[in-house]
Amino acid sequence: MRILLVGAAGKLGAAVHETLVNRGHSIVTVGRSSGDLRLDITDPAQITAAYDRAGDIDAVASAAGDVPYKPVVEMMPADYLSAFNGKVAGQLELVRQGTARIAERGSFTLITGVLAEQPIPTGSAAGMANGAVEAFVRSAAIEIAPQRVNAVSPTIFTESVADYGDFFPGVEPVDLERVASAYVRSIEGAQTGQVYPVR
């Protein structure tokens, strides 16, 4: 398959890229500052331009999303809007625009996360964003068939414990290799409307 991979330069994106290449897929990498195509996922016009330049695509995989982490009492309305724009709106727009751009039986794989169901202090914006992505996946799946849409919901990455482990006390980390396998399941499988937890 020819796959558009958004967020390819990050830890998760790099792992997904390597896994998909090793499985024989052709990858068009997309990132804000690196990759085959440059894209700010928060700008719908840039998403349009990326699809225009990408050519024929069988699947879209997103490993992109940015949210602020602050205590609720310190959050401002702009912070929640930033979380929505940074993780939700861009991924939704990849699907909205992409239905007319990818293969008839192509797929979308989005990224969410454990905080949709297992909150941590300072994680209200992330929980909100993840929950929105998951609700969208379930709703969109019933409308876009035979195209498919799923989400991958990991916990903290083993490779990120040194940086963020203190925010996830007692939470079992997962290797990026396992998370990348969930992307493979979504892209190469047949299910739709699924949120694949990686715990």
Results as ranks from 00 to 15, higher is better:
V30I: 12
V30C: 13
G31Y: 05
R32W: 03
R32C: 06
S34R: 15
G35W: 00
L37R: 11
L37N: 05
L37P: 03
D40I: 13
I41Y: 09
I41A: 15
D43P: 08
P44H: 13
A45C: 09
A49H: 10
A49N: 09
A49G: 09
D52N: 14
A54R: 07
G55K: 07
G55W: 04
D56I: 07
I57N: 04
A59G: 10
S62R: 07
G65F: 07
D66R: 15
V67P: 11
Y69H: 13
V72P: 03
V72S: 12
V73Y: 07
E74D: 14
M75P: 00
P77N: 07
A78W: 00
D79Y: 00
Y80S: 08
S82P: 02
S82L: 12
S82V: 03
F84S: 08
N85P: 00
K87T: 09
A89Y: 13
G90I: 13
E93S: 15
L94M: 10
V95S: 06
R96N: 15
Q97P: 08
G98M: 03
T99E: 14
A100D: 14
R101W: 00
E104K: 05
R105D: 13
R105P: 06
G106N: 08
F108P: 08
T109E: 06
I111A: 14
I111K: 12
G113H: 04
V114G: 04
V114T: 12
V114I: 13
E117M: 05
E117V: 14
Q118L: 10
Q118M: 06
G123N: 07
S124T: 13
A125G: 07
M128T: 14
G131F: 00
G131M: 05
A132Y: 01
E134I: 06
A135T: 15
V137R: 09
R138E: 04
S139K: 11
S139M: 05
A140P: 01
A140N: 02
A140E: 01
A141V: 02
E143G: 10
I144Y: 01
Q147C: 04
Q147I: 05
V149Y: 04
S153A: 15
S153K: 11
P154H: 02
T155Q: 02
T155R: 08
I156H: 07
T158I: 06
T158D: 13
E159M: 05
V161M: 00
V161N: 00
A162N: 01
D163A: 12
D163M: 05
G165N: 12
